[in-house]
């Protein structure tokens, strides 16, 4: 089977610096201009039939890619199966909704609070469960995702089943306005966040935490014997993933100006997991591709939208059975070695 990832990596390897810079700049410019693609005849095939194209770019596409990147740290990098990722998204969104309506803090000030709260809940959930085998983590997180929703339904401060309305939009920065009629602002802010996450993940991957996660993913017992403090790094992976989910939640709440428990069902966790698995666990570019495809296609192709969950379930089973590494698989260890021998300045 063709390996797009290696193909891309080889090309990238051969390019010199100016070539790489030009490529990245052009790619970034194209992505930045995506919200306007629907207005021109040569690119209006991207338009979505039901919801507005610009809104689709923000949610689901941008939001899913961001969350998939966050979940990728947990599932892809360190091999921990988190089935309740929506819980952190919900915690972020409810933080934004409650603080945004009850206090005078604006969304930019709430963002770190939301991320912090998501992170703390990640640590609290991780401490008892990350000591155990992966399956327990899966089922506990599955339960946790549902519990957060049940608490939101039954609690007065979260507005019960009706949720919270009138969540404020963020104040504008650098002249970019954020409002319901100006979706590109939200798209750009998510894009910035995605870029930050990519940068962070790439940095972490080549340093101690990345190596520890890789070791844990491959064989936890051996990693532990080699002196890797596995629990600590697993909790780090879990809470960094949670913080990214929380950040996505804060932006989501202020973008839709409204949160309700229905938005945070188990389905969202499955969707995000499918994005990660479909694209290629552990590989940033694969995850971005998977997130884009799985978020965009159901909006573009009408008949999928009703059976979308079913399609995602099928995608999970088929990908796992046929191509367990996803569309763009992660780099294999041997290949890293080979690359190291071929070029000395890696």
């Amino acid at each position: 089977m063709i390996n797009l990832r290696d193909f891309g990596a080889e090309k990238w390897e051969k390019w010199n610096r100016p070539k790489r810079t030009t490529f990245v700049v052009i790619l970034l410019a194209l992505v930045t201009l995506l919200p306007f693609a629907g207005d021109y005849s040569f690119s209006n095939f991207l338009n979505t039939p039901i919801s507005s194209y610009q809104a689709v770019l923000v949610y689901p596409v941008g939001m899913f890619v961001l969350m998939a990147l966050g979940l990728n740290i947990v599932v892809g990098k360190s091999g921990l199966l988190d089935l309740g990722y929506v819980a952190f998204f919900a915690i972020g969104a409810y933080t934004a909704a409650i603080l945004g309506t009850k206090t005078h803090l604006n969304i930019w000030e709430i963002l770190p609070i939301g991320m912090g709260l998501a992170m703390i809940s990640g640590v609290l959930l991780g401490l008892p469960t990350l000591r155990l085998r992966g399956d327990y983590l899966a089922i506990v997180t599955l339960g946790f995702g549902e519990i957060v929703r049940i608490v939101a339904v039954n609690n007065r401060s979260t507005g019960g089943p009706n949720g919270i309305a009138n969540v404020p939009n963020p104040p504008s920065i650098l002249g970019v306005r954020f409002a319901l009629d100006n979706m590109q602002g939200f798209f750009w802010i998510i894009l910035v966040m995605i870029l930050l996450v990519i940068w962070m993940v790439r940095r972490l991957s080549v340093r101690r935490p990345g190596r520890a996660w890789e070791a844990i993913r491959q064989d936890e017992d051996v990693a532990m014997l080699m002196g890797v403090p596995t629990l600590r790094y697993k909790i780090w992976a879990f809470s960094i993933g949670a913080a990214i989910g929380g950040a996505a939640g804060v932006i989501f709440a202020s973008k839709s100006m409204y949160v309700a428990p229905d938005m945070f069902s188990f389905n969202v966790s499955v969707l995000i997991l499918s994005c990660v698995v479909f694209g290629g666990m552990g590989n940033i570019w694969g995850v971005i591709l998977g997130g884009t495809i799985l978020a965009y296609l159901p909006e573009r192709i009408r008949f999928i939208s009703n059976a979308r969950q079913l399609v995602f379930g099928l995608a999970l089973v088929i990908i796992m059975n046929v191509r367990p590494d996803g569309l763009l698989p992660r780099k294999k260890r041997e290949k890293i070695h080979k690359a190291g021998e071929a070029t000395t300045n890696v």
Partner: peptide, 29 residues
């Protein structure tokens, strides 16, 4: 299939979740 291939546990877990979603969504539809 996954057992025969000897892939890691994560793959089996994910494919089991996939089957569970297929069953639930199939019945829902």
């Amino acid at each position: 299939r996954l057992r025969a291939k000897g892939t890691n546990r994560l793959a089996s877990l994910i494919s089991a979740i996939g089957v569970s979603i297929i069953l639930q969504e199939g019945v829902r539809i």
